[in-house]
Amino acid sequence: MPKSVKQLINEIDLWKDAYHIRYEPLQGGCTNDTYKVTADEVSYVLRMNDQQNTYLQLDAPWN
C-alpha cells in the first residue's frame, strides 16, 4: 500500500525537528505526485512515485 504524504514527511530526517510543516500539491507531474513542502518557512519539493517503480521493477533489491 502506498504511503501518504504525511507518512513520507514524517520519515524525512531533515524535517523531524521542524516546528511547522505544511504542504500543497504541485500541478504538472506525469508519473509522480509532486508537493511543495514548507518546513519552518523553507520550501522544498517532494516527489512521490507509486506504481511505476513496481512496474519497472525499481523497488527490487540491488545485488
Rank of each mutant, 00 (worst) to 15 (best):
V5S: 02
Q7P: 01
S43T: 08
A39N: 04
I21S: 03
D59M: 13
L58M: 14
P25V: 07
T31D: 12
G28N: 03
Q52Y: 06
Y55E: 11
W62K: 14
Y19F: 12
L26T: 02
K3E: 12
L8K: 02
L58F: 05
N53E: 07
E24M: 13
Q52S: 09
N63K: 12
P25L: 09
Q7L: 14
Y23R: 01
H20T: 10
Q27H: 07
Q51E: 10
A39I: 03
K16V: 05
N49W: 02
C30R: 06
L56D: 05
T34A: 05
G29C: 00
L58E: 06
H20K: 14
M48K: 04
I9E: 03
Q57S: 12
P61Q: 11
Y55I: 09
N10R: 13
Y23C: 04
Q52P: 07
M48F: 00
Y35S: 01
K16N: 15
Y44T: 00
T38I: 09
P2M: 06
Q52T: 06
R22V: 15
Q52N: 09
K6S: 14
Q27L: 11
L58T: 00
L14M: 14
T31M: 10
V5M: 06
T31Y: 06
A18F: 06
W15M: 08
E41C: 09
L26K: 03
Q57I: 10
R22L: 08
V5A: 04
D17T: 12
N53M: 14
Y35M: 01
K3Y: 11
P2A: 03
K3W: 08
V45M: 07
P2V: 01
S4T: 04
R47D: 07
M48V: 14
Y55F: 08
L26R: 02
T54R: 11
T54L: 13
C30A: 09
T34D: 08
D33R: 01
K36T: 09
N32C: 05
W62T: 15
I21M: 07
N53R: 15
N49A: 09
Q57C: 13
N53V: 10
D40G: 04
V42I: 11
K3C: 08
C30V: 14
Q51M: 09
K36H: 04
Y35P: 01
V45G: 03
P2N: 06
K36G: 03
I21L: 12
K36W: 01
L56R: 04
Y19P: 14
L14T: 07
L56V: 01
N53Q: 13
L26A: 02
P2H: 00
V42Q: 13
D17S: 12
Y35Q: 02
N63D: 11
K16H: 15
Y19M: 09
V42T: 11
L26Y: 00
T31L: 13
Y44D: 04
Y23E: 06
S4Y: 01
V42F: 07
N10I: 10
I9R: 00
I12L: 15
W15R: 04
Q52D: 11
P2Y: 01
V37S: 01
Q57W: 05
